[in-house]
Design a protein around this nucleic acid. Sequence first.
DNA 1: TTGTGGGATGACCGCGTGGTCATTTTGTTA
DNA 2: TAACAAAATGACCACGCGGTCATCCCACAA
Lengths: 206, 206
Amino acid sequence: MTARSKEEVVQEYRIQSLQDATMRVIARKGIGATTVQDIADEAGVAKGTIYLYFRDRDELVEKTFESAISRLHGRIDEALEAEGSLEQRLRESLLRAIEFFRESGQFFRLYIAQRFPEGTPQQQRKQQRQCDQYRTRIVKLAALFEEAMQKGEIRRTDAYRLALFFAEGTNAIIVERVMEENPPPAEDDVDLIVATFLDGIRIQRS
Amino acid sequence: MTARSKEEVVQEYRIQSLQDATMRVIARKGIGATTVQDIADEAGVAKGTIYLYFRDRDELVEKTFESAISRLHGRIDEALEAEGSLEQRLRESLLRAIEFFRESGQFFRLYIAQRFPEGTPQQQRKQQRQCDQYRTRIVKLAALFEEAMQKGEIRRTDAYRLALFFAEGTNAIIVERVMEENPPPAEDDVDLIVATFLDGIRIQRS
DNA sequence: TTGTGGGATGACCGCGTGGTCATTTTGTTA
DNA sequence: TAACAAAATGACCACGCGGTCATCCCACAA
């Protein structure tokens, strides 16, 4: 029992540290330019070692992406499913997303890049799942809006497209923050997004 | 004179047809997976021929991107700089963008992919210009918002971030349209975007 | 018809990659 | 300490890419 779990722990640690290294390298060089050798160097192991834990390069990248993205989505969903008004929940989820990307360095590159799968149609099978994760994100957001529409909190319109607009608009600002050396307080950007989205920018002439 | 222009015409035609082929292949396979041979096959010429007109693969992709993007931005700027209210100008520019991406098939892949340059820092020099084109787009939009703020048409806030939010939110919906087999009328999506952006989604309880 | 010049060709090359596996190192048990 | 199993290594291979260039082709002038 103890021995068994020990092996598992070591194995899990290795896998985790390889994925961490993968994240760091991809964040620095981009997915296309990242070689298996780069990752091995970053992790301080030989290239061959990587193939003891992952079938091939694709699996390494895929697993790395999946574990990171599910951490992100977990934190966001938690906020969206909490008690409170739509505004409160949106604010909290935005704060968490911003926090996550700040901690995870330039993980957004991986995040963005995976949304538009490349390669021949055969290769795209694998990436479909990751694309689906993004879509799931949007669908959940859309469900939230749908709910708010039924409660009469917000205007009736196409919830899915609304979710797309919100999610991508938000991403743009998060990406900008990641590139900036001294981004403004997270609250400022959250204010801007939520205010624009909920009440628009037009000044009402009454 | 005639001879000279004839050569030029032939040359220009070749360049154009190579760029067209490049667009088609990249739209189909993605930038990373597109080889020079693919493009040559698509254009119906030998691989070597491409190097008579373009220094290397990067130049081909870059030039292709630049000519397409400046066509797009030209049409959008025209709309944004026209006479009329902010709403009218935004609507017209959105219509044109949607129109453009419909005509240009899946050019958006190229458009999106170029925003996040990959490769080693040395290679990123080239792509900087293309990144700048995107930034220019945002800056112009921000200037428009700035102007509207001074006129008192819209609330005061960070114009640049507002432009980011708007542009990317819009992109998301355009991308969605491109993927859909039967997208709704362009006007519907324009309505959704403009209404959300100008007046928000919250129902005012007065 | 023949000669000529420049555009077009595709076999070829070097390189860097992902992936393999015989060998070495490490850790454990008797 | 010795014997053994498992994990790690990195030299090595095959492949496909971007890019080159000796050769070919053909429009057109003489």
